[in-house]
């Protein structure tokens, strides 16, 4: 079954629990300069008297035609046939950063220690075993979810509230 990560923007308060869960799941060490694969933030725009706030949590969108995958010269990135996630095996990564330049969401990141690129794998092994991705599991407001393609179509049809996934950001 193919899955889509969906952020229900109306429920997100950018608390970053998702980012912390990501760091816990993936042993990210910020003291070594590493950053989590998911980031939450607040964007504030508009006039000072009436500002508009947007609360977001952004990670790899696991795009259908993933530009990072196309850009990688050594074939590290591929689509997982079971989940549809954009997964990687960075054994042959040469750290050329081509995937980073291809990504519209600033997702692939370079690990100085290993000299290789890395990114969100959608917690693919968890999902394959019926568990939720770490960021989805932790979200205190249920803003993040992982839905199947068909559930996603249904969601888009029936729920007018602002949802963010690669489908509408592309």
């Amino acid at each position: 079954m193919k899955y889509v990560f969906v952020l229900d923007e109306s429920k997100c308060v950018a608390c970053s629990a998702c980012a912390v869960a990501c760091m816990d799941q993936n042993d990210i060490d910020p003291l070594a300069g590493d950053i989590p694969f998911r980031a939450a933030f607040v964007d504030e725009q508009g006039p000072v008297e009436d500002p508009k706030f947007t609360f977001l949590s952004i990670a790899c969108m696991h795009c259908e035609n993933a530009p990072c995958m196309i850009a990688c010269p050594t074939g590290c990135l591929k689509k997982d046939p079971e989940t549809g996630f954009t997964v990687f095996d960075n054994t042959n990564c040469i750290g050329c950063h081509s995937c980073a330049m291809a990504c519209p969401f600033a997702q692939p990141c370079f690990n100085d220690n290993s000299g290789k690129m890395t990114k969100c794998d959608g917690c693919v092994e968890r999902v394959k075993r019926g568990m939720q991705p770490a960021c989805v599991k932790v979200c205190p407001f249920g803003a993040l979810s992982l839905v199947s393609e068909s559930e996603y179509q249904e969601l888009m049809r029936t729920d007018a509230r602002k949802k963010i996934s690669y489908k509408i950001l592309d």
């Binding site: 980031a39 964007d43 725009q45 947007t54 952004i58």
Partner: peptide, 8 residues
């Protein structure tokens, strides 16, 4: 977009 601004 807000996402791009935030990421930058």
């Amino acid at each position: 977009t807000p996402a791009q601004r935030g990421l930058l």
